[in-house]
Design a protein around this nucleic acid. Sequence first.
RNA 1: GCCCCGAUGGUGGAAUGGUAGACACGAAGGACUUAAAAUCCUUUGGCCAGAAAUGGCCGUGCGGGUUCGAGUCCCGCUCAGGGCACCA
Length: 938
Amino acid sequence: MEYNFKEIEARWRRQWAQDGTYRVTEDASREKYYVLNMFPYPSGAGLHVGHPLGYIASDIYARYKRLRGYNVLNPMGYDAYGLPAEQYAIQTGQHPAVTTAENIARYREQLDRIGFSFDWSREVQTCDPGYYHWTQWAFRRMFLSYYCNKCQSAQPIEDLVRHFEAHGTQGVEAACSEELSFTAAEWEAMDEVRKQEVLMNYRIAYLGETMVNWCPQLGTVLANDEVVDGVSVRGGYPVEQKRMKQWCLRVSAYAQRLLDGLDGIDWTDSLKETQRNWIGRSEGTEMEFRVAGSEERFTIFTTRADTIFGVTFMVLAPESELVARLTTPEQRAEVEAYLAATKKRTERERISDRRVTGVFSGSYAVNPFTDEEIPIWISDYVLAGYGTGAIMAVPAHDSRDYAFARHFDLPVVPLIEGCDVSEESFDAKEGIVCNSQSARFSLNGLTVQEAIAATKRYVTEQGLGRVKVNYRLRDAIFSRQRYWGEPFPVYYKDGMPQMLPEECLPLELPDVDKFLPTETGEPPLGNARQWAWDTERRSVVDKSLVNNETVFPLELSTMPGFAGSSAYYLRYMDPHNGEALVGREAGGYWRSVDLYVGGAEHATGHLIYARFWNKFLYDIGVSCEEEPFRKLVNQGMIQGRSNFVYRIKDTNTFVSLGLKDQYDTTPIHVDVNIVQNDVLDVEAFRQWRPEYRDAEFVLEDGKYVCGWAVEKMSKSMYNVVNPDLIIEKYGADTLRLYEMFLGPINQSKPWDSNGVDGSFRFLRRFWNLFFNGDEVAVTDEAPTRENLKTLHKLIKKVTEDIEVFSYNTSVPAFMVAATELAQQKCRSRAVLEPVLVLLSPFAPHITEELWHKLGHTATICDARWPEYDEQYLKEDTVRMAVSFSGKTRYTIDVSADATDAEVQQLALGHEAAARYMEGKQVVKIIVVPKRIVNIVLK
RNA sequence: GCCCCGAUGGUGGAAUGGUAGACACGAAGGACUUAAAAUCCUUUGGCCAGAAAUGGCCGUGCGGGUUCGAGUCCCGCUCAGGGCACCA
């Protein structure tokens, strides 16, 4: 019988949808398993073959777990807010909601064709008010919370207010933007606006004036992870530093917990490492320096407190407020000129052009260990946002300080015995300290590590400073001056932001006709004339107000892309709940994601924000687990495999790959869809573009052979492969199998359509195992031992592979087994049925069809995963090496069930042979584990 | 500069410390066919010997080491990929 994949796949697609086969509900009697894919942003281009890779891998795992008896949650949805839809709207005037809906419909169609076991009844879209209700809700709660460093958790802001009322800042240990100090009486004396300003310093979601990445072309600010090499990730537009008032999330408060949490989760080392780098914990010392001849003092941060005796100058960041305080009148003009010059340089210029620049402030600091006076400089190599914005410079042991010292001819004092600093600094934290002695304190003779510890102790004891941990992780900037995103649930009263009451949520995104930011720099939401501020909502707010006529302005920015993707995994657990983000029961059952599959490019974006967001929700009792994603698998990128034709210069003649070196040619990208096995379809090429209509070809062996290269899959390189075409030609099961077969799931690898036939041929061979002509030829006859051996080998291999996601080696195992069973002419139901179940996660349509042909009425997804039996897996013999005098001399085959004693007996029998070969006497025979006979001669 | 990961045929890639190269692609040869496509079969790491069956030697980026035995473990290089980067 013919393997008619089109008919089979269409039938089962319909049937599964009709029966709701993949719907799941909470079921306390069964163990849960939560499989999640990073949900896609539905772009206009549709899916290419790279997108489903991770989905197929997770679908296989989900189906496997289900066959193992787990209650599996495997949802899907769309990350629907974002810049591309909006950029498209600006260009074409099409409303982003319209294009997004169109794109989603197309994605859904493509996804449906691949045969995923998604429970679509739980679909979420981040742009749906029913969904972003809870994004706004979480933001609101962050605004109403502060982070308590003592209990390491988010707490209600009212608790902090009560503390201020009773004790002022005395005893407050809260994460904040800047350290404040006031008494209870001072707090009471503040007016309402001032109090709000103070609280803003502590809120987890706060309005802060900070240096931001401003992208003029996109008309919005961007988060650090959205900027690479000084340009925007989306679009590649230049980004500059600008001081702006923006909504921020106090992610930095969670830095230590984000770091600690990594130890308990099953992610790849490289991804954890990336997050550790991004969090950038560094343990060091804060030291206070006096300014000579003045009352001024300032604090620096260093990880090399041991180098205090080598400090030859101090440096302040240009943006530091210390600059104004420490600049002497004589130096004022020069310093101001320098500040003006640095301000003009963009981030990008600073990165690409690392000139040493700086200016002397005129002041001197006093070294607290030696009382020596050292000049204070200002330079842009010191960052305002890290540490205290001021450093002590030790040119002998820091390459940046070294470069600065050499440029401005400042002294270099080496502190490590035997180090040479004539050409470069000695940065390594190793060696024996020297030159480090004053009347009060000495580090000479210690190792660097000992010296760091000793200095820390001394600094703390003498009150010169304190041990301090710094993090590189910055607070996330949370406003975007764009239209297509979640509105903030915020209105302004007396210039201070207020949260809308909970019952006013969701605050819906209004319709506007212009998506561009307005000329005055106002966000596009300014274009919405009577935005959502309906009477019903206003009346809730107004109750507490004297004047009911007041119309409060609403926040006009929208939230960034990561807002909607930060808690979607929780919403899937209970997507239709109108009362809560996730209900107690559903949340308590599904708890957290057991397996998360997605790209590693989200390491410093989504995966940090989602962990932060979840930890906050955990603190306020919404999420049941502190870490949202227990295990994470990164699927590698699928790269494109581009094809080239070679045009002879200044002609319309194209020469085949093998002959191109005889001519002067230019390689030109050619659409991979008109090339098969690197052979060009010349007619299709002539049709492809008008300028090639009259193309001539120089062939080899009657064929035009194209060159190839692995590149990013992109439209401009004509190497995009659409899964629809593969499905059309071979079916979804072949696509699934081939994508898994392509290589290890976590590795980047090029897509190569050439091999798809191989997977298709396997499925057809597999199909034929079940038929004799048009008759189903499966019998109840007892399987032979050989059949069972093939079966159990397969069960073991596939089970183990699935557990570690080595699907690429499972596929060959199926191919080998199918070949063996065909050779054995196996027709036994007892063998073929388990094989069907094993294959069903990989190729759900064909196996479902055969399962029903074998007389089952229930779906194959409800079958049971077979267990293997060791007795069929034993090899008959084991090869043993007989070695003596340090060399393996020969091997013997021993029955596999021989005991170690029997093996030893056998080994004794080799004594004579050994003696003969060596002409010496055997003194010892050792049987080592692994069944190696080791005869030692003397 | 720092951190992480990797290097195996013409290609993608297999190998709990135990017969390296599974499986697939590609290639070559053959069968079927008027022909083509499709399908099926055989060969396919290199070198050497042999008429053949077959046998021998060399082979997992480079150099050492551990081990009876190393693609796998350890040390040192080389190269490629990814992350972070004036973070004091």
